[in-house]
Design a protein around this nucleic acid. Sequence first.
DNA 1: TATGAATGAGAGTTCATTCAT
DNA 2: GATGAATGAACTCTCATTCAT
Lengths: 224, 224, 224, 224
Amino acid sequence: MRGDSTAERIKSVAVQLFAQKGFEATAIREIADAAQVSTSSLYHYIDTKEELLTEIMTAAMLKLIKCSLAVVDPTDSPPGRLVALVRCHVGMQIIDRLAALVTDNEIRALHGDDRAKVLKLRDEYEERWTSTLTEGKEDGVFDVAVPKVARLALLEMCNGVARWYKDDGPMAVAEICDHFATLALSMVNAQRDGRPLRIADVTREPSVALYERLVHIAKGGVIE
Amino acid sequence: MRGDSTAERIKSVAVQLFAQKGFEATAIREIADAAQVSTSSLYHYIDTKEELLTEIMTAAMLKLIKCSLAVVDPTDSPPGRLVALVRCHVGMQIIDRLAALVTDNEIRALHGDDRAKVLKLRDEYEERWTSTLTEGKEDGVFDVAVPKVARLALLEMCNGVARWYKDDGPMAVAEICDHFATLALSMVNAQRDGRPLRIADVTREPSVALYERLVHIAKGGVIE
Amino acid sequence: MRGDSTAERIKSVAVQLFAQKGFEATAIREIADAAQVSTSSLYHYIDTKEELLTEIMTAAMLKLIKCSLAVVDPTDSPPGRLVALVRCHVGMQIIDRLAALVTDNEIRALHGDDRAKVLKLRDEYEERWTSTLTEGKEDGVFDVAVPKVARLALLEMCNGVARWYKDDGPMAVAEICDHFATLALSMVNAQRDGRPLRIADVTREPSVALYERLVHIAKGGVIE
Amino acid sequence: MRGDSTAERIKSVAVQLFAQKGFEATAIREIADAAQVSTSSLYHYIDTKEELLTEIMTAAMLKLIKCSLAVVDPTDSPPGRLVALVRCHVGMQIIDRLAALVTDNEIRALHGDDRAKVLKLRDEYEERWTSTLTEGKEDGVFDVAVPKVARLALLEMCNGVARWYKDDGPMAVAEICDHFATLALSMVNAQRDGRPLRIADVTREPSVALYERLVHIAKGGVIE
DNA sequence: TATGAATGAGAGTTCATTCAT
DNA sequence: GATGAATGAACTCTCATTCAT
């Protein structure tokens, strides 16, 4: 549990630089400089530049999956799960914004097994969105033509958050999460008994509380 | 009088490579090889690698703007304009897929005036989305909490198309355009007289016809 | 006699650029641009860049020799010839300043026969200085330890003029020529009957008149 | 504690090549080859080619200034100072011949601050010549029309030494220094009580001794 | 654990020159 | 006489990585 501060610092500045300038445009020397180590020292902590990227992406994906597992109840109804998925995803896009950006933008820099590993994680995660949408359509609670198209639209829309979010923006994170959850419910025409479903219809947990749970889990907190 | 094929070829292969590997990861020598010219010959047609990217992005943005101006009637109602915007945007993401991908992913490779020029075009274009959403909310035809958030969500969702679209996919382009237009109308809860609006309620032009117009305009055709 | 204006223009801008930036630092394209022709057209007028330099240097040396032959009377006494040599040399350094600069600075850019040709001309010319000094020493009219050292000192001192001369300087060209002639006479302790020689003791031609003759000859005038 | 031989070697071969072929005509690869390092290793020791030139020039100028400060007594009479300046300058042109050549020929390859820095040093140094000549004229010990013209003539004449000096020449260095000192005294008509001044009239230090002091100081020796 | 020195490969770009038209 | 297109070779400089210390 004792923080290996140098290793952490390296990963941290790497995420920042990869997010800001892109993987290819970031020189290993820049990372070393920013982390205040020499380039040769850097290589005590990483194997290769690409492996560093892989670690960053894998960690981000695992964190996202961990959070979504903690927050999305698989026994819940499709609308309940959708709201949880969206709030969790959008929340994580903000909490772990730079890593999310990197994960979304730099997969093509990865090759072979590294790439496959990350893509596998992503596919597993996205499958939970697909099944939620499909089940909801079968249940008649979602009115959506093609669940897969809806999933693509929803995920891109949520991933986009990391692209435009600014820390000094006017909107609270929890607020943004709820806006997106609402947009998602609308998008899939979620309704019960002919009446459109709202967030309050599917969950009692306030977005702020959920957001705090995410922060805690993301920080390495144990899932209770 | 016959087209300057070399210059076109260079731009074309550059778009492909930039889209596939990213700007930074693409070597000027790869572009030259793919275009079947020597690197030094390449420099007869371009000034710098960055300027080549700028031209690609500017051209893509201008094409998109040209198409949307041709296809979106500013006197139309907000729902009509939204459907047109979405169908046009999604259509162009597919017609000009690689350039769209590049434009969306590689702005950070641009610096100074080049970057500013492209961002200015993008902002002007996106402003037309914002005003459509705002006006629709004011008219009561859209039920959306914060138009700007909706715009961000909509645009990211539509931009995403270029990321996952495959030429050999099961769905026709016009079909995809309509799916997205439908999702968009749902997302903003477009309704009139308490009843949700469908595409057919706001336009009579079939998506296929519109798509063909886009292809024609994008190919340099004149706007009638 | 009809001026081949393009060829002249090329040589003229080449001299300017070579003088300003040096031969190696001047691109053939810069010459073409400045001469307002395309690079390929340029090659109708020159063989190679090096040959262009050779021509410039040869022309400058020939002009200098022509002038000095016209102005230095071989039957004159050593002091008279020295004054004439210095006035002529310094005058030409100013009249043909850029070419003189190039000739002095860029010989190492020349190779093989080109280099030899220019060096031969220079050696022939300098030999006339040596013989003047040697003869003057033998006659007892110059008091100088080693004529060859004096020649080196004198020539470098005179060549230097092209390095510092500015068109808008405070001193007239003829004035500068006379200052240098006086310095030269002093340097070699020119004297007759125990009394130092002045310019007026060895020539009646005013420097201004001589300068005008130089300008005329340098412009291609015939030697009468 | 033993000298950083690689860095020294690089500077040393760079001076040789720059002197021989000129800055622009010297490829960074040639320097690397001659210094027996790879081009990329070279860049551990230098920032850019231009900065390497700047360092060479600055070091040469500083060395010259250091020597002249050690050797020229500011309380001495103008003729004494002139002799010291000339002997020192000519001596250094030979001791540090290649660097002197480079410093004199390649300033135009420098830009911006680099150029300004070197020119400032040169101007400061040359000012000491001007003041010596001016003071000598005021004292009546030099008979020279315009001190500034004399300074230009003297400096160019002395700088020239590096251009023609050959190690295997017939003349000892100290001898050359004295020849030039004598020429300088004559050039400015240095006299006292109507009789021309000779070196022996102004200094008792033999040129050989002074030359040895210069070598010692130039090698980094301390000024006592 | 830390790093200065080292490097082969390759980056983007420019060079002087040629040639078909 | 003029030029747009073309190019092989070379340019300065940076890359990710290694290794002896």
